[in-house]
């Protein structure tokens, strides 16, 4: 699957280039991100892997413009995070960030009003695929249903960069497979990059073209998933256990 996607993007001009240049983010004395430098490869699904507290969420929030770096620079297509770069990013946080009093329909209408790249047909398809009731109030949805709604919001757009922070966290197995299928089916390798953070590698391993193991805010290991498997003779799950043992 990964090879096929890379063939698709061969020769295609990058749509959104995300660059971290010696980025540091502190919370008090804790360095959540520590002098981190990397460039996100366009047209891939990057697995951002690490245990709790490794800095995965902070990294995604930095790209989404919800945190500001204390040191270094982050650029998205050469620009620091701003309302302009936010238009290129679809961000799904781990926590519930939607208005509980809104219905599913109102949530979709509200969020879609801010994006020119919103695909209404795809949104409708995803709502049906996820089994969401448009009239249901967000606060009344189960955790799994809320997670599905968040996926609909992130994947209904043609955003060049999609940031998914633990999209499978706390979700039952049925919803997990549905969420993963939605991510795979809606991914557009020729014009999209997905960064998905998780500490649960088993289910999502097959999805990743690239992986970045984050430990104490630093890169512990990074590269193409297939190459790492070949070179080390281990699955990503086994590598995860090795790196974070």
């Amino acid at each position: 699957m990964g090879r096929r996607r890379r063939l698709l993007i061969k020769g295609v001009r990058p749509v959104a280039r995300v660059v971290f240049d010696r980025v540091t983010k502190r919370f008090g004395r804790l360095r959540a991100i520590d002098d981190l430098s990397f460039t996100l490869r366009e047209g891939t699904i990057l697995g951002l892997l690490g245990p709790n507290g490794a800095g995965k969420s902070t990294l995604l929030k930095l790209v989404a413009g919800l945190h500001r770096p204390d040191g270094g620079h982050i650029t998205i297509d050469g620009e620091p995070p701003s309302p302009k770069t936010k238009a290129k990013i679809a961000y799904l946080p781990e926590i519930d960030h939607l208005y509980g009093w809104m219905t599913v329909r109102q949530t979709l209408a509200y969020v879609s009003a801010f994006y020119n790249d919103w695909d209404h047909d795809r949104s409708q398809e995803l709502v049906n695929f996820m089994g969401l009731d448009l009239g249901a109030r967000v606060s009344r949805l189960s955790k799994g249903m809320r997670a599905r709604l968040k996926i609909v919001l992130a994947m209904s757009r043609n955003a060049p960069v999609v940031l998914l922070d633990e999209p499978l966290s706390g979700i039952d197995p049925t919803s997990r497979s549905r969420v993963l299928r939605a991510i795979v089916s809606e991914f557009r390798g020729d014009r999209q990059t997905i960064v998905m953070s998780t500490h649960d590698v088993v289910e999502s391993e097959a999805l990743f073209d690239e992986v970045l193991f984050l430990k104490d805010g630093r890169i512990a290991l990074a590269g193409e998933a297939e190459r790492l498997r070949e070179e080390r003779g281990k699955s990503i799950q086994e590598l995860f256990q090795e790196v974070f043992a």
Partner: peptide
């Protein structure tokens, strides 16, 4: 209510 995540991530 953590909706600041949505508010601040909007391209507005």
């Amino acid at each position: 209510e953590n909706t600041s995540y949505l508010m601040l991530s909007l391209p507005a």
